[in-house]
């Protein structure tokens, strides 16, 4: 069984890395989106799946990452005159990550005064607020207001969908590993305790606030990197794209559709969701929200461990009969 697992991982690795070269550009873009959604779902899951706090505003870290990435690249290009791609991509990704982490650090102080439903709705409210902030006339000289922000064209011309795809793949593997290691570490165990019962964790010596804070920062940093990757890939964004409420539910839905608290669950969720969502946006744009709503109700009413629950049910049934 273990051999099969490793074989699958290696096969998946070969498949994904060869797809970047072999697949047509349209599918490479689709796969890049899939990987980005996967990163978002996995990084959301550090809060939602492990800690049990539904951070519905997870998407703001992604948006902030995208904006900071573009701002860093444009500043480096215009001020320092750098245009060699690796020398500006690296600091830009670092900046996206750090800024997202800092925002998470700041937000953790007020937000963790809340729990459960209140936490979820307050974090949801942050999306609207960030959207207003980024499209405000006061900040327009920096963020571009409603019309959004564009990567400097002489940098954007050097990128290709393939480059974004491979970067997204690397970040996806990093996120997956972080998620995997977290679940097995003492820190992850603390988070699981908090999810089970916060009072008991507190009295048994877990510093709940510090642990939650760290979890939020981790998940924000990963989302920030994903945002940077998205910016590199699209070279343009505006507040309506990255800070929209519908988009905010993608990571949550993907994580829960596949089954949260696992690595493979969000991955399966991302694969299904990307293709279904793409199909809907292309073919039934006016019904997308309605269908998304029905899917949300379905996922909410159904097994909360998602498709992984069904899979484990099948396994159990098979083991019982054989």
């Amino acid at each position: 069984m273990k051999g099969v697992k490793y074989a699958l991982i290696i096969a998946g690795f070969i498949l994904t890395s060869s797809l970047g070269i072999l697949a047509p550009t349209y599918y490479v873009s689709l796969l890049t989106f899939m990987l980005l959604y996967g990163i978002l779902a996995l990084s959301y899951d550090i809060m939602g799946g492990l800690t049990g706090y539904m951070n519905l505003g997870h998407i703001i870290f992604y948006g902030i990452g995208a904006y900071v990435f573009a701002l860093t690249i444009n500043t480096l290009f215009s001020v320092a005159g750098l245009s060699h791609l690796p020398s500006i991509l690296f600091p830009a990704f670092i900046m996206s990550m750090i800024t997202a982490g800092l925002v998470a650090l700041l937000l953790s102080y007020p937000l963790f005064r809340l729990r459960g439903f209140y936490f979820a709705v307050a974090s949801l409210g942050l999306i609207t607020f960030t959207s207003i902030l980024f499209s405000s006339p006061e900040l327009a000289p920096i963020t571009g207001g409603f019309s959004g922000i564009t990567l400097n064209s002489s940098v954007a011309n050097q990128t290709s969908p393939q480059l974004s795809y491979y970067l997204a793949l690397v970040f996806f593997i990093i996120t997956g590993s972080v998620h995997f290691l977290l679940r097995r570490s003492k820190f992850g165990l603390n988070l699981k305790c908090i999810k089970e019962d916060e009072e008991i964790s507190e009295v048994s010596g877990i510093h709940t606030f510090r642990n939650k804070q760290l979890a939020l920062i981790c998940s924000a940093m990963l989302a920030g990197i994903a945002g940077g990757c998205y910016m590199l890939f699209q070279t343009y964004t505006n507040p309506r794209f990255v800070f929209s409420i519908e988009f905010a539910f993608l990571p949550v839905t993907i994580a829960l559709l596949g089954g949260s608290g696992t690595f493979i669950g969000p991955l399966i969720g991302a694969i299904i969701f990307t293709f279904v969502y793409q199909f809907l946006v292309v073919n039934l744009p006016s019904l997308t929200k309605l269908i998304l709503g029905l899917v949300l109700i379905g996922v909410g009413m159904g097994a909360s461990r998602g498709l992984m629950e069904i899979y484990s049910l099948i396994l159990r049934r098979r083991d019982n009969t054989s």
């Binding site: 519905l56 829960l256 929200k289 309605l290 998304l292 949300l296 379905g298 909410g300």
Partner: peptide, 15 residues
């Protein structure tokens, strides 16, 4: 209940 209720009521909101 938290997860289920949030998803159901958000879904309803979208609809």
């Amino acid at each position: 209940l938290l997860i289920g209720a949030i998803l159901v009521t958000i879904g309803l909101s979208f609809i």
